[in-house]
């Protein structure tokens, strides 16, 4: 188990709506806004807006995550966008 896999749900939750750089296995890096971290697999799900108006969604698998660095915090517009991606009716409880 890696440090990332051992985190608690509330620790993972603190990354939601943050822009992060993820260092993954074999020196791969990924950057995007954290949508969620699956509490079963520790997979981290990222969204990155594209120029064509679409979103690029990537997931780094929990076992391959080596480091997660927070680089930015979402403003209200971005939070709104992120929370509507998969859950159109979600309440805004955790997005302070």
């Amino acid at each position: 188990m890696t440090e990332w896999q051992k985190k608690s749900p509330l620790e993972w939750l603190s990354y939601v709506n943050k822009e992060v750089k993820v260092l993954a296995a074999e020196k791969n890096t990924y950057q995007g806004w954290v949508l969620t971290v699956d509490p079963v697999s520790a997979n981290i799900l990222l969204a990155q807006p594209l120029e064509n108006g679409k979103m690029s969604i990537s997931a780094v698998l929990g076992h391959a995550v080596q480091d997660v660095e927070i680089v930015n915090e979402a403003d209200d517009t971005m939070k709104e966008k992120l929370s509507h991606l998969f859950m159109p009716e979600e309440r805004q409880r955790y997005s302070q």
Binding site: S8, P9, L10, W12, L13, V16, L35, T36, V37, D38, P39, V40, N43, L45, I57, A59, F86, M87, R93, Y94
Partner: peptide, 16 residues
């Protein structure tokens, strides 16, 4: 609080 956090995280991932 931990259970509610886990529900939110898991539901979002399953929906994705």
């Amino acid at each position: 609080e931990e259970q509610q956090g886990r529900v939110l995280l898991r539901e979002r991932y399953l929906r994705s």
